[in-house]
Every structure is written in structure tokens, then in C-alpha cells.
């Protein structure tokens, strides 16, 4: 499942761009690969992000994965529901499982569109 209207990273994150704001989460492929998520750690509102730097962590029962900032900017909202209900990411990765909202200051030049991400997945999806 790769929604048409989103942008994607090689680390299997998605971005919904609305003006200078981007909502960020992980893709259906990413949640499927991770398995049941049991822990999500996100930055705080007001934190600044720099492209490529670690912004948080998601953990399944077996595995730990880091999240990398896909753009530069400032965190304007985080999905606090994920603290108690990380399973929302598994259940609805592009909806209720969103992770954070960022006011973009730059970066994002290397993002893929849906068709590009789809073929990236078909090629194995290894960053």
C-alpha cells in the first residue's frame, strides 16, 4: 500500500506536504517489516530537525529501528497517542499512526514520489 499523494524516503518514511508543513510517519512496508510495535520515542514540540539525523526510535518486540529526519525544520506537533498505543502505527500507518508534524526549513530534495517508492520496494527497498 503506497498512497499516491505522499512523498517517501529510502528509510521507509512518508511525508504529507501541506504548504511549509510536513506530516511524517513510517510506511506500511516499514511497519510490516518491523512487526508489532511496542515502543515509539519521538522528539518534543519545538525541537529542531536536521536532515539525516536521528529523530526518534521505534521498537517492535524483537527489533529496534531509528527514525531519520527526512527534512530540516522544527517539530510543531507529535502524535502523543503513540506513547500508549504504538500499535496505531501497525493498524493505520498513514492515518492515526502518524508520528510528527514539522515546519520545514529546507532539505527534502531527495524524496521519492509514490511511483518511485513503489519501484524502490520492488528492487528490495534497501537504503
Amino acid at each position: 500500500m503506497v498512497p499516491e499523494d505522499l512523498k517517501y524516503t529510502r528509510e521507509h518514511e512518508w511525508l504529507r506536504m501541506e504548504g511549509d508543513t510536513a506530516t511524517i510517519g513510517i510506511t506500511d512496508h516499514a511497519q510490516e517489516e518491523m512487526g508489532d510495535l511496542v515502543f515509539v520515542e519521538l522528539p518534543a514540540e519545538g525541537d529542531s530537525l536536521a536532515t539525516g539525523k536521528v529523530l526518534g526510535t521505534v521498537e517492535s518486540v524483537k527489533a529496534v529501528s531509528e527514525l531519520f529526519a527526512p527534512v530540516d525544520g522544527e517539530v510543531v506537533a507529535v502524535n502523543a497517542a503513540l506513547i500508549d498505543r504504538p500499535e496505531l502505527v501497525n493498524q493505520d500507518p498513514y492515518g492515526e499512526g502518524w508520528m510528527l508534524r514539522v515546519r520545514m526549513a529546507g532539505g527534502g530534495e531527495d524524496l521519492m514520489n509514490a511511483a518511485e517508492y513503489q519501484s524502490y520496494l520492488q528492487d528490495g527497498g534497501d537504503a
Binding site: G35, D36, V38, S60, K62, E87, N90
Partner: peptide, 20 residues
């Protein structure tokens, strides 16, 4: 099943999900 290498075997790590 998702099959993974384990001790030289290809073994199921999970079917529907570890929690379920």
C-alpha cells in the same frame, strides 16, 4: 510465516504477529 535463519535452519519467526 515470516521465515528467518536460526541456528542454521530456516524457521518461522512469526505468522500473524508476535503479540497475538
Amino acid at each position: 510465516a515470516r521465515l528467518v535463519p536460526f541456528a542454521g535452519w530456516e524457521m518461522p519467526i512469526q505468522y500473524r504477529g508476535v503479540l497475538a
